[in-house]
Computed example of a mutant assay.
Amino acid sequence: MVTVSDLPIIVGVDGSEPSLWAVDWAADEAALRGVPLRLVYARLWERYEGTSLAQDLTRQNGEVTAEDVIETAAQRARLRAPDVKISTAVLPEEPEYSLVHESRSAAAVVLGSRGRSSMAEALLGSVSVTVAGHAHCPVIVLRGSHDNQARAGRRGRIAVGVGEKPAHSAAVRFALDEARLRHVPLDAVRAWRTPAHENTDHPLMAGEPARLHEEQAAEELEEALREAPDDVEVRRRSVEGPARRALLDASAGADLLVVGAQRRSGHFGLQLGRVAHGVLHHAACPVAVVPEEA
């Protein structure tokens, strides 16, 4: 019987520098969790990502095969995490399909935020967005500095966005696990706003709607963190304003930002939500998108 500890970290490899930095990050994560690492290359990736290859893959004759890409990534992972069990796969499938399929039996999927196309600097790669929107496990997309290189945590904290349904949140559980494994504090952020129709000019009611919404946000934070383990330091923050802005601000001081994404049964469109979509494009650190059941 397969247990959670047997599930691998999956990393998508396409031969680009960002995908090799994702290999570094995934190898560190696998070592941290004590789980295997599985490197996946989809043969049809070139159709989406162009031809810009990592320096590691320079060949005198200019020919680079899928096997070259995956073996270079595997060698890099072995150097990074020599104690981690590593497997590889070259799949004759669309990259989005193969990675979403792989996510059914994975602890997490790790991807670079940019692929091998010239447009990727401005827009998050279509593969990363699609996989984050449909995967069956958490998807970690490297965001942050312009080089996106995997580094040991420098800020010493994890941040998580607490949504409108805080009870039994998969995103909060994932963030608590990450904070515990890394021995760092967790910043739990709940954004709130006072609806315009609740504003009043009556002097006896001044500030009352805002106070009630702030109190509700604080209660939702407590509900989300009710089962937080004693060995994790949790910092609760309720922030007035749009959730996207609050989480982007939190990402500036975090090593990982965790957000939830609702999964609606029978719905085939993109299921990221506006907040998750926004932070994937603009966060200042890697982002973990965790599926939440509707």
Rank of each mutant, 00 (worst) to 15 (best):
I140A: 00
E17L: 03
D83H: 13
L7R: 15
A206I: 12
G241N: 09
N199D: 12
G260K: 02
A77R: 04
V258C: 09
A31Q: 08
A284W: 07
G112F: 02
L39Y: 11
R173K: 13
H277Q: 14
D147K: 11
H134F: 01
L270Q: 10
R104L: 00
V234H: 06
E219D: 14
D177C: 03
R47C: 06
D6R: 07
I10V: 14
I9H: 03
D14M: 11
V162H: 12
R59Q: 15
D24P: 05
A107C: 06
P286G: 08
V110E: 01
S87C: 09
V110W: 06
L142R: 04
D28G: 11
N61M: 05
A171D: 05
L181E: 09
V279R: 04
P291A: 01
V141P: 02
G207V: 13
V162I: 15
T3L: 08
H281A: 13
V232D: 08
S98C: 12
V69L: 11
Y48A: 11
R190F: 04
V275L: 11
L212K: 14
I140K: 03
R157C: 11
E29V: 09
L91M: 12
E198M: 14
K85N: 10
G133F: 03
P185V: 10
R157V: 04
R211A: 15
I140F: 09
R151W: 00
F174R: 00
P36D: 03
P286T: 02
E63L: 14
R274M: 10
D56L: 15
D230G: 12
G125A: 05
H183E: 15
N148S: 12
L181H: 13
E220G: 10
A22W: 01
E214A: 14
I10L: 06
Y48R: 07
S265L: 12
R226G: 10
G125W: 04
L186I: 08
L256D: 02
V131T: 08
R143D: 02
G125T: 07
Q262D: 07
S103G: 00
E220P: 02
G278Y: 06
E223M: 11
A206Q: 12
I10W: 00
S52V: 14
A27S: 15
G125V: 02
Y97D: 10
W192L: 08
G163V: 03
V23A: 02
R154H: 12
E96D: 03
Q55K: 08
T65S: 15
R104G: 00
L57W: 09
G253A: 10
I9C: 09
Q75N: 15
A179P: 08
V279T: 08
L39S: 10
A30R: 01
P95D: 04
E227K: 05
A175M: 13
L91Y: 04
R38P: 00
V232A: 12
L44P: 00
R193T: 13
A122W: 14
Q271P: 01
P291Y: 02
T72Q: 09
L248D: 11
